[in-house]
Design a protein around this nucleic acid. Structure first.
Length: 325
DNA sequence: AAATCTTTCAACCGCGTGGCC
DNA sequence: TGGCCACGCGGTTGAAAGATT
């Protein structure tokens, strides 16, 4: 009964990926680009199902992924975006381009949920839970609650932003510079990381698999980190995540710097076909983000106009924008 | 030092959706 | 129009690591 498995279970390997498998997958994607996952296992000889390959790539091997500790900024953004969007981790992740939805989801479940719970139990017994995962509510309540949620989220987000930037509220959209639409920014990351993968592959060819395996006794985590370590902007510093670098990338702390401008034409012009494909992939992501620009505008365009939220919500007719909720 | 408990996070599973025929 | 297929998403699981007793 039920849906047949996505792939033949017989002979399909499960569990943690080995460095060897990572290399095979990365080199294949480098050559053919991401996509057509169905054919990846057969073409690479990997004993993995297509889903597993895609997941491994998107959550771990894909260039531009930042791992390790979340910065305060990221934390706040996740909290507020979760309040806004609910458990739409992919949508939330689109605002944190260096984080995967899986990462964010895990972080929410393991850290932020507890944090917020603590916070709320620390407060009065009033039902201050502004977050979506709560008891069932009626439709009318849901609508009122949604309005409250959005209002609270908007205020909290503005507060968070002003906390991080005590001297100034962003004149422009604070998402500038790392908004998923800002493709040149992504391109620079992908470009640098694609080079790393190439370098890694070169080293892989030089070294015997055994030696690699030895280096990766900590299973796959190290191996995939290695992919980026060669970069110089290594996430191996993740223990002490580099908020400065990250913030500057995101332009949070320097509203005048436009990251999209910081990428030279050469950099984007020198993209390999693989990089372009990666860009194409990110392009596909962008399409799912279109509705969010509306929220962005609303959140940041007129931060001072609190109290107009109800009007705005009224304007945001569910019929006109069915995808928003 | 060993046993037990807790936390973390990579990976899996099943469902929804959109594209193609 | 309906069925099939591939992909993406969110919830869940379980092994490993870390903390505590």
């Amino acid at each position: 009964m039920g849906r047949p498995p996505c792939c033949d279970k017989v002979g399909v390997k499960k569990g943690p990926w080995t460095p060897e498998e990572d290399i095979i997958l990365v080199s294949y994607i480098q050559e053919h680009g991401p996509g057509n996952w169905r054919s990846v296992p057969t073409n690479t000889g990997l004993l993995r199902c297509s889903k597993s390959c895609r997941l491994r790539w998107t959550n771990y091997l894909r260039p531009g992924i930042k791992r390790g500790n979340f910065t305060d900024h990221e934390e706040k953004m996740i909290i507020h975006l979760q309040a806004l969007l609910g458990n739409r981790w992919a949508a939330i992740a689109s605002y944190l381009p260096q984080r995967t939805d899986n990462d964010i989801k895990n972080y929410w479940n393991t850290h932020l949920k507890k944090k917020l719970k603590k916070l709320h139990t620390g407060l009065d017994d009033h039902n201050q839970d502004g977050f979506s995962a709560s008891q069932p509510i009626s439709k009318g309540q849901w609508e009122r609650r949604l309005q409250t949620d959005i209002h609270m989220a908007k205020r909290a987000l503005c507060e968070a932003l002003s906390l991080d930037k005590p001297s100034q509220l962003p004149e422009s959209n604070p998402f500038d510079g790392y908004h998923p639409y800002t493709r040149p920014y992504q391109a620079s990351i992908y470009a640098s990381n694609a080079e790393n993968i190439a370098r890694l592959l070169e080293n892989w060819n030089k070294n015997s698999p055994k030696s690699v395996q030895k280096n990766n006794s900590q299973n796959t985590q190290n191996s995939s980190n290695n992919l980026v370590i060669a970069n110089g902007s290594s996430p191996s510093t993740e223990g002490a995540t580099t908020p400065d670098a990250f913030d500057s990338l995101l332009s949070f702390n320097s509203p005048t710097s436009d990251v999209s401008q910081s990428v030279s034409v050469d950099e984007t012009a020198n993209l390999t076909p693989e990089m372009n494909l990666v860009q194409d992939e990110s392009k596909a992501d962008l399409e799912t983000q279109v509705p969010l620009t509306f929220l962005e505008k609303w959140l940041f365009e007129d931060g001072a106009t609190q109290g107009q939220d109800v009007d705005l919500i009224n304007n945001m007719s569910l019929e006109d924008n069915p995808g928003y909720f």
